[in-house]
Design a protein around this nucleic acid. Structure first.
Length: 115
DNA sequence: TTTGTGACCGTAA
DNA sequence: ATTACGGCCACAA
């Protein structure tokens, strides 16, 4: 269990929490927004070490192809599916339709960070 | 110092 | 639709 630097983890969490209710994003995209391009895996590691005891919308983060990161059938996958459905997101066979639910931030929304 | 390990990603069979 | 690879990078052992 790799422990991610607290500062980076915090930055990742802040970015994750910009994803609005009813939308999803990917590990890679969050990494890019957090100023960590190419480090999608690190986003996963950060969420793993933090999701248990912090207030983070970890369930809104899925793979770039629309599948949940957890193995279908696993407890974690079921929990995530339930949380997503609670927000109105349709999940079929551990997969989300990205054309409908992918978060596409506006330019103004993207600029809010750099300061 | 080297090696193995991820809640990943894009490309190519 | 799947599988396979290589790339990615911080950490732990």
């Amino acid at each position: 269990m790799p422990q991610i630097d607290h500062e980076k983890a915090l930055r990742i969490c802040e970015t994750v929490n910009r994803v609005p209710v009813g939308k999803v994003s990917s590990y890679g995209f969050i990494a890019d927004l957090a100023g960590l391009p190419g480090r999608a895996r690190m986003v996963g590691s950060a969420l793993r070490q933090v999701s248990a005891h912090q207030n983070v919308a970890w369930h809104r983060i899925i793979r770039a192809d629309g599948r949940l990161a957890f193995a279908s059938g696993s407890d974690a996958a079921h929990r995530q599916t339930e949380m997503l459905r609670r927000e109105g997101i349709v999940v079929v066979n551990g997969r989300v339709d990205l054309t409908r639910y992918r978060w596409q931030p506006e330019l103004a929304e993207l600029l809010q960070m750099n300061y």
